[in-house]
Every structure is written in structure tokens, then in C-alpha cells.
Write a protein that binds this DNA or RNA. Structure first.
Length: 638
RNA sequence: GCCGGUGUAGCUCAGGUGGUUAGAGCGACGGUCUCAUAAUCCGUAGGUCGCAGGUUCGACUCCUGCCGCCGGCACCA
């Protein structure tokens, strides 16, 4: 039985960080679990390398787009290698076979009448050569702030609109097709609203896969990227995928666009889509501007990859957002891995060496612990099956705790001093029980902490790899009497919290610098390019104004309608997206800064004759500009 | 504004269809053993189960309203 699973393909505009690692590590764990359950599991990941952003980034470095993405793709490939992940297919959107897959998918859709040539009307920035999605006439370019122009472009469209009912039928027929349920609800709401046809090609972009017989057209983002899941296993009989593992930000593309493309092409649909949450840093969003992005390799180097794997799967409830912190990481490492599993292995194996010459004693083990172990296996597998990793691990640690307690109750060190036959038998039983429970827990944990499990496994004396273990081997009593143990050494040496965190932070700085160097990014250069001349700045007419009236805008969360006096005969009517932070009554009488020479625009039926100036905080909240000195209304800012 | 979710010990979370003293792990504190990685084990402290009403003999568990947080859509000149 095959089991084909995928991670998203990662966009080559940034180097890999812990977020990428989170998804990929989870996928690797699922793959190992499926293998343990007897499947031939295949895992695909890769890189998404097309598009204007890449085109421009490469140009800025004087590289070809291909040269540029070669470096980053290699960076990702290497990252997974360092972390020891079992990637079977690494598919790049720039590979030839992928191009053929995309073109083939397109032709299948076209031949069945689901694609047509039309006109895309949108906003375009001529300076940045950039299409601004979802912008409206008059909107500024997000890159340079200059006004965008409305342009029309010939595009191919996919008839997404005609798939609404089929998609709803799919979600209805397979309620667990998209998980967790909260994501399913969102998708349902989105599709029920009605679907618009989707633009799937561009003539303004060069860096992409050409549309067959249309040399000017290149495929646009999702039609290209999603298809890697097919091309990675082309001709291998592995499609459909059993699982697409994704982040919650790309649910729509996987749960709406992708099945529609496949339905249109009359290809089988993936079996399941699971969207995980985001990894936050100490409860804040990780972002470049905050400078709080964490990379996986420093953790790998200080505590080992398994510490990271265990932390991510134990601490984060899979499907929900989770919080990463070095403190929590080291805490989990010490209390669960070092004191828990590592110490249990250490004490158990050491005692067998000391009291029984390193050979597993002959016994059936304690019946209660045996039962607990069998129940643990059943419970943990059940949780794993539902991707409830944290619960599965909690269950397994329940067994570890049970055995620690059992050892103390039996006090084998006392039994060892007694000379009678009953003590000898009891000691045999105690040691066997601890060793057998350790064997089962270790094998059960191997998908989550493969390297460490392998070490413990060989210390127990096995010569075959722990990755060969199948679920049926987890039954109590399979440990053979007489088996000779290997040499014992600490698998999870206790970590000094302060020192290891310092070390990880240090390495983090190094790794960041290394990645930047690899990407050829130098911060000063980017700033220089963004500089404008004084003339450009003087084009912006900013004025001090005083808010005369303020009211909420009906039917909107964020908008306030303000009347701002800037010394003109009539106050300006300004609609501003600040309702989330400011109460209307608190604004009346407040001095503000506005941009006075903007093209007016209608919002919710109200004309906005300017823009209020505010700092844009992380998370999108605004903070209005104000003055410490008393400034006259109408004064110009420069 | 509409829709979905969520709010339980310092932290992370469990708590089918309402029923005796609300649980676990980590952390804190005290004690214990000595096989073990200053580990283990035992014990203690700590919660008006977001707030206010309601239904009920009885609600963390059901209903209503409010507040907070998260997310989706709309929207953010």
C-alpha cells in the first residue's frame, strides 16, 4: 500500500526558517509513522521558483532568474539534509518534467472547455513593473507608493465559477477532506459566497512556464505551483496524494482551486488536506521587521534535531497556532527527554549491565505494566492517526512515568543485594519489565525522534534498525531473553538552560548572516535603491489639520468618516481605516497630519479627500502622527 | 458588519449526552531513595472553570446577553 504525502513547495524569496522546518518535520514524522504502519510512504517537497518577485530579485543581483533560484533551492535541499528528513522527491517548478505536467494539465482543462482567453483588468505600477492584486483604481503601489494605473491584459481564465456546486458536494461527501474543521468551515463559507473565474496566465511576466502555443503567456502562480504535487511523482502511479500538509494561509488554494483544476482535468483528487497553524515566537508573529525569525540549524547544533522535533510536536497542538521560545524548548528537553526518556533508558540498561551481566533476563514481565504498555501503544497510534501528536506523546510519557514509578516500587537495587531465589526472580521480572517497556516506547517514538530512538535501540542491543519496526512488533513480550545490551551512554544529556540558550542565539546570528550571504543580500544596498530625491518627497503635500467631526462608517469595522479642517474654506472629508484603534469622539479636536494632494476616492459611498498620516504598527494597527508643539492648522510638513 | 472558533491552576492543556471534594504535565515548595543524566518517587501550595443573567433539585458542562482573544469574508485613500 502506498501513502503519498506532500509539504507545500516553498517560495524562493527567502531562506528556510523554523516555519518551513515545522511543516517539513511534521511531514517527515507522518511519513515514518505510515512506514511503521506498513505503508510504502513517499514524501514530496520542493521550491516554487517563478514569478515577478524572483525575476526582480535576480535582476537586482545581476543574476539570471535560474542562477538565483538554483542557490535558494539548494539551500532548502541542504536544510532538509542537515535535519535528516526523509525527502523522497524534491520538485522544483523550474524542472522540465514539471513544465510538461503544467502544460498537460492546462491542455486537459482546455480540451474539456474549462479554460478561455479573456481580459484581465487590474491595477499596475509602471515604475515597479508590478501588478497589484485586488487593488482598486487610484490605489497606490505597495512597493513605491506611486499611483497605480488601470491596465488590461490578455489572460487565460479558468472557469472556477462553474465548480461551486461540485466543490460543495465534495466537502459534503467527505467531511474530513479538509481539516481541521475550523478551516473546513472557512472554505465552505468562501465557496458558498460564489466563485469568480481565475486568471491563470500572464503576458507581463517572463519568468514562468509558457502556455502551449501561446509564446507570450506564462502560467500564473497557483496553476504552476500546485501542479508540482503531480509532477513530482509523474508516471509512478502514486497520484492521488493521500495527504497535502499545508499552512493555514494557503488553505484556499489547496481546498478550492486545486480540486477544481483536477476536476476540470478529470484527474483524481487528493484524499485529505490538513492545514496546520503558525509558529509564533513568544506569542508574536515572526517577521523580518521584528527580526525574530528563528532558524532550525542552531537548535539542531546545540540540542539536536530530535529536541526540535519533539518540542514542535509535543508543545504545539497540531492545527492550532503554537508558540516557540528557547525557554520552553530547553524546558521540554530537560524535563521530558533528559529526565524522562533518557534517564529511564540510562537507569534500566545500567542495572541490567550491573546485575545481569548485560543480558536481558528471562521473564514475562509485570502484568500491570504490560497491560499499560499495550494500552499506550493503542492509544498513541490512535492519536497519531488523527494527527494529534501532542496527545500521542503525552500518552507515551504516561507509560514512561508508570515505569519509573514501577522501578521505585520494586527497588531492584535492594533485590540485587538479597540472595534468595524469590528476590532473584523478582529482579529478573523487574528488569525485564523496564527493558521491554523501554523497547516499546522507543520504537513507538522513533517516527518523532528517529536519531535518538536509533541510539537507544542499539543500546538495548538490537542490530536491525529501529526504522524496521512495525506496529505489530510493539506488542508486549517481544523482547527476547538473553539479548546482549550495547554500551550505555546518555542520549539526551541534561542541558544547562542559560548556556544552551546563549549558544543557540549566538549561532542564530551566524546562521542569519550566512543565509544573507548565500542569498547575496546586503541590507545597505536595498536601502539605497529605495531612496528618492527631494523633489519626489516635495510632491507630497502634507498638512496639519484639526478633526472637526468624526463618525463611524456604517457597515464597516475599520473605517471612520472624519471632517478635517486644514485651513481651507471647507473641511476635508476623509475616510480612514482607524476605527479599530480610535473612538470617533476621542478624535474631535485632535491635530493630525494629512496628505492633502491625493486623488479623491470613494469608500463605502463616502468621498475621501486625503489620507491621514499614521504609523503602521505590526498587525496593521495605526498610530496617528501628532505634535508636541502647538502647530497652526494648515501648516505644511516637510 | 457578517460568519466560525475560543476564554479552566504561574505556563501548556484534559474535562461524551449537566450530578459526590474540577484533573494532568511542567514550574514552585517540602520530603525520599540511590539503579540512573543534581535524575526518580512521595507530598504540599495554587483555580469565584471570562463576566452577568436564565433553565434545573443540581451547570465548567445547556440557553441569552456582554467582554476579551484568534481566524475567515467584506474592508483598510
Amino acid at each position: 500500500m502506498k501513502y503519498y504525502l506532500t509539504t507545500p513547495i516553498y517560495y524562493t524569496n527567502a531562506a528556510p526558517h523554523i516555519g518551513h522546518a515545522y511543516t517539513t518535520i511534521t511531514a517527515d514524522t507522518i511519513k515514518r509513522l505510515k512506514i511503521m504502519q506498513g505503508f510504502d510512504a513517499v514524501l514530496t517537497t520542493g521550491t516554487d521558483e517563478h514569478g515577478v518577485n524572483v525575476e526582480r530579485a535576480a535582476e537586482a543581483q545581476g543574476k539570471s532568474a535560474q542562477e538565483y533560484t538554483d542557490v535558494i533551492a539548494e539551500e532548502f535541499r541542504n536544510q532538509w539534509k542537515i535535519l535528516g528528513l526523509g525527502i523522497d522527491r524534491f520538485e522544483r517548478t523550474t524542472s522540465d518534467r514539471h513544465a510538461r505536467s503544467v502544460q498537460d494539465l492546462f491542455l486537459r482543462c482546455r480540451d474539456r472547455g474549462h479554460v478561455y482567453k479573456g481580459e484581465y483588468k487590474g491595477q499596475y505600477c509602471i515604475f515597479d513593473n508590478l501588478y497589484v492584486n485586488e487593488a482598486q483604481p487610484g490605489d497606490p503601489c505597495p512597493e513605491c507608493g506611486r499611483p497605480t494605473e488601470t491596465v488590461t491584459e490578455e489572460n487565460y481564465f479558468f472557469r472556477l465559477s462553474s465548480f461551486q456546486q461540485k466543490l460543495l458536494d465534495l466537502y459534503e461527501a467527505q467531511p474530513e477532506w479538509i481539516q481541521p474543521e475550523t478551516r473546513r468551515n472557512e472554505v465552505l463559507a468562501f465557496v458558498k459566497q460564489g466563485l469568480q473565474d481565475l486568471s491563470i496566465s500572464r503576458t507581463s511576466v517572463k519568468w514562468g512556464i509558457p502556455v502551449p502555443n501561446e509564446p507570450k503567456h506564462v502560467f500564473y502562480v497557483w496553476f504552476d505551483a500546485l501542479t508540482t504535487y503531480l509532477s513530482a511523482v509523474h508516471g509512478e502511479g502514486l497520484w492521488p496524494a493521500d495527504l497535502h500538509l499545508i499552512g493555514k494561509e494557503i488553505v484556499r488554494f489547496h481546498a478550492v482551486y486545486w480540486p477544481a483544476f483536477l476536476m476540470a482535468a478529470e484527474l483524481p483528487l487528493p484524499k485529505k488536506i490538513f492545514a496546520h497553524g503558525w509558529l509564533l515566537f513568544e506569542n508574536d508573529k515572526m517577521s523580518k521587521s521584528r527580526g525574530n525569525i528563528v532558524r532550525a540549524t542552531p537548535i539542531h547544533r546545540v540540542l539536536g534535531t530530535d529536541a526540535l522535533r519533539y518540542f514542535l510536536l509535543r508543545e504545539v497542538v497540531f492545527g492550532q497556532d503554537g508558540s516557540f521560545s528557547y525557554d520552553a524548548l530547553v524546558g521540554r528537553y530537560n524535563s521530558d527527554l533528559a529526565n524522562g526518556l533518557g534517564n529511564l533508558a540510562s537507569r534500566t540498561l545500567t542495572m541490567i549491565h550491573q546485575y545481569r551481566g548485560g543480558a536481558v533476563p528471562d521473564s514475562r514481565g509485570d502484568a500491570d505494566v504490560a497491560q499499560a504498555a499495550n494500552e499506550t501503544v493503542r492509544g498513541a497510534i490512535e492519536c497519531f492517526e488523527k494527527f494529534e501528536f501532542s496527545r500521542a506523546l503525552e500518552t507515551i510519557w504516561g507509560l514512561i512515568g508508570r515505569v519509573d514509578k514501577f522501578i521505585v516500587e520494586r527497588a531492584p537495587w535492594k533485590l540485587a543485594k538479597a540472595a534468595d531465589e524469590q528476590a532473584r526472580r523478582l529482579l529478573d521480572e523487574t528488569l525485564y519489565t523496564a527493558a521491554e517497556a523501554l523497547r516499546i516506547a522507543t520504537a513507538l517514538l522513533a517516527p518523532v525522534i528517529p536519531d535518538s530512538a536509533a541510539k537507544i535501540w542499539s543500546q538495548i542491543g538490537f542490530t536491525h534498525p529501529v526504522s524496521d519496526v512495525r506496529v505489530r512488533d510493539l506488542e508486549w513480550g517481544k523482547l527476547a531473553a538473553g539479548q546482549l545490551l550495547g554500551a550505555v551512554s546518555a542520549v539526551f544529556p541534561r542541558a544547562d538552560a542559560k548556556l544552551s540558550i546563549e549558544k543557540m542565539r549566538e549561532l542564530e546570528v551566524e546562521e542569519y548572516a550566512r543565509q544573507m550571504a548565500v542569498l547575496g543580500k546586503t541590507v545597505p544596498k536595498a536601502e539605497e535603491e529605495a531612496r528618492i530625491a527631494i523633489d519626489d518627497f516635495l510632491k507630497v503635500d502634507m498638512r496639519v489639520g484639526i478633526v472637526r467631526e468624526a463618525a463611524a462608517v456604517r457597515g464597516s469595522d475599520k473605517l471612520l468618516h472624519l471632517q478635517v479642517d486644514i485651513g481651507e474654506p471647507k473641511a476635508r472629508s476623509i475616510v480612514a481605516g482607524i476605527a479599530g484603534v480610535y473612538q470617533p469622539e476621542a478624535l474631535v479636536g485632535r491635530k493630525v497630519a494629512i496628505v492633502a494632494n491625493l486623488q479623491p476616492r470613494k469608500l463605502k459611498g463616502l468621498e475621501s479627500q486625503g489620507m491621514i498620516v499614521a504609523a503602521s504598527l505590526e498587525g496593521g494597527d495605526p498610530a496617528l502622527v501628532s505634535f508636541l508643539e502647538d502647530v497652526p492648522v494648515g501648516a505644511r510638513l516637510k
